[in-house]
Design a protein around this nucleic acid. Structure first.
Length: 477
DNA sequence: GCATGATCATGC
DNA sequence: GCATGATCATGC
């Protein structure tokens, strides 16, 4: 038998043994390595930790546990079995965040980073990646492709520590109930409960909070996957970094470093900055303010390592002379048939704002019509805005889909979806290259397949997306 | 003047 | 060619 063909006090030995998993499906692993008779009925297929438990039990031959120490205590190694996926364009992403350990609101405020359970769970991780495929019916047929030890690099660790204290400080100020994953950069506080109604107490407020766990964000894990796990990729490109050295993070937070870099340029006009950075201001370059923002940060491209890991989008905003933000801000387009079947907590809109951070770079129009760089700020949607106001707007849009969309032909096609004025934060609007419709009477126009998608009742409508109201964005600055 | 519907521009 | 970010422009 294969029992104990590894030294559980030695990380390298555990990793070496784990390499036996590579190229095998979970079923094959069980057939080859299990010393038990495997009973499928015992495996609750809904339990997410399931595949990890399976590897612990049938491959490493120890009992699954949920204690706060690392799985291989002597070696200080934590085992994580986690999915990745292939995107439409061929690239690979982590499928989900990596949950590390529950946050005990009452205890965590007494801990520091290095004596926390979190550190025991994330200092050295054996990452076992399997390829997720939505067409594979039986999870046991997923194939394991990588098994590798991972420790967060020094620079990442500094940011993770900052995230840890951001979360702790929010708990200390009695705000555990407004925690959100997008509050932080690499380490997030993700909701973790059997159902959304379960709540728990917090030390500095009477308000009950959702139970949460520390996790590495999906965006962070995608970077880890592509840069530390998948070996020797042909396409490997070293991303630019904003932070050159981990020492820089000892005295200042990542966010503060970014703000300081940008702030040096406050007061300069768009035209000043175009000259300064020798940019080509082609007449209709819609990305010029974004490009300027990148250059102010010392970046050549829109792919800074830290922004990818933290899921941060740079948004250049224009405030005109009347003190209005010129445009609302679009989200990725959605399909009606997806939206109508969604629940709020797993909806794309919720996920987007729960996970997305923004760096707003604000340009204000002066009396001569010049846009002047005036301020910048990191932003993520506050918990209650998302879970009360946006949720309400989202539900009403979903209800219109359920009760039936009425399209009215004219020069423009109008509809009965809730309007911008019906919700303080979000509205929906067309988002396609051209408009395209199929009406109830069978008439149609436009490139249906490219620009429209089907409504529940068989009509087709120009593809829409959610937008953040410009008035709301202004309030957030 | 602004909301709403529509479309342009860029990067992959 | 598509997805997404950014902006235009008509009609109320």
């Amino acid at each position: 038998m294969f029992k104990y063909y590894y030294d559980d006090t030695n990380p390298k030995s555990i990793e070496l043994y784990a390499k036996n998993l590579i190229g095998k499906t979970f079923n094959e692993v069980i057939n080859i390595y299990s010393e038990y008779i495997f009973e499928t009925s015992n495996e609750n297929t809904k339990h997410k930790g399931n595949l990890g438990d399976l590897i612990e039990k049938h491959f490493f031959h120890y009992s699954p546990n949920s204690n706060p120490n690392a799985d291989f205590k002597e070696a200080g190694v934590e085992l994580k079995v986690t999915p990745y996926k292939q995107n439409k364009n061929g690239s690979f992403s982590a499928k989900e965040r990596l949950v590390l350990t529950m946050i005990n609101y009452n205890d965590i405020v007494k801990e520091n980073f290095y004596n926390s359970h979190l550190w025991a769970k994330c200092s050295l991780i054996l990452l076992v990646y399997y390829l997720y495929n939505k067409d594979t019916k039986n999870k046991l047929d997923y194939r394991i492709d990588y098994a590798k030890l991972f420790s967060p690099p020094e620079k990442d660790l500094e940011i993770i520590k900052q995230d840890f204290y951001t979360i702790i400080n929010k708990i200390k100020s009695g705000q555990a109930h407004t925690l959100s994953e997008s509050d932080t950069n690499y380490l997030g506080a993700v909701t973790k409960a059997a159902n959304s109604t379960k709540l728990t107490s917090q030390p500095f407020s009477d308000k009950l909070a959702k139970p949460r766990a520390f996790s590495f964000k999906t965006s962070y894990m995608t970077y880890v996957l592509n840069n530390y796990i998948i070996p020797n990729k042909d396409t490997y490109i070293k991303n630019e970094s904003i932070i050159s050295c981990s020492k820089d993070l000892k005295n200042k937070t990542f966010n503060q470093i970014v703000i300081d870099k940008l702030s040096k340029f406050i007061g300069k006009s768009k035209n000043d900055l175009i000259k300064e950075f020798k940019l080509d201001d082609a007449k209709n370059n819609k990305a010029i303010l974004n490009l300027i923002s990148l250059r102010m940060l010392g970046l050549k491209s829109n792919s800074a390592e830290e922004f990818i890991k933290a899921n941060i989008k740079i948004k250049a905003l224009r405030i005109n002379r009347k003190n209005k933000i010129v445009e609302s801000m679009s989200l990725p387009a959605f399909k009606f048939k997806d939206l109508i079947n969604e629940d709020w907590e797993t909806s794309n809109v919720f996920k987007y704002f729960d996970e997305q951070k923004f760096l707003f770079v604000v340009f204000k129009e002066d009396s001569n019509g010049n846009y002047i760089f005036s301020s910048c700020k990191f932003w993520n949607m506050p918990y209650e805005d998302l879970n009360i106001i946006v949720k309400d707007g989202w539900s009403k849009i979903q209800n219109t889909l359920k009760s039936g969309v009425i399209l009215k032909k004219g020069k423009f096609v109008s509809n009965n979806f809730p309007k911008k004025s019906d919700n303080p934060i979000i509205h929906i609007r067309p988002h396609a290259q051209k408009s395209a419709y199929i009406f109830k009477d069978g008439t149609s126009y436009g490139n249906i397949n490219r620009d429209a998608n089907e409504l529940p009742d068989g009509q087709w409508m120009t593809t829409q997306s959610f937008w953040l109201n410009n008035s709301y964005i202004l309030d957030q600055l």
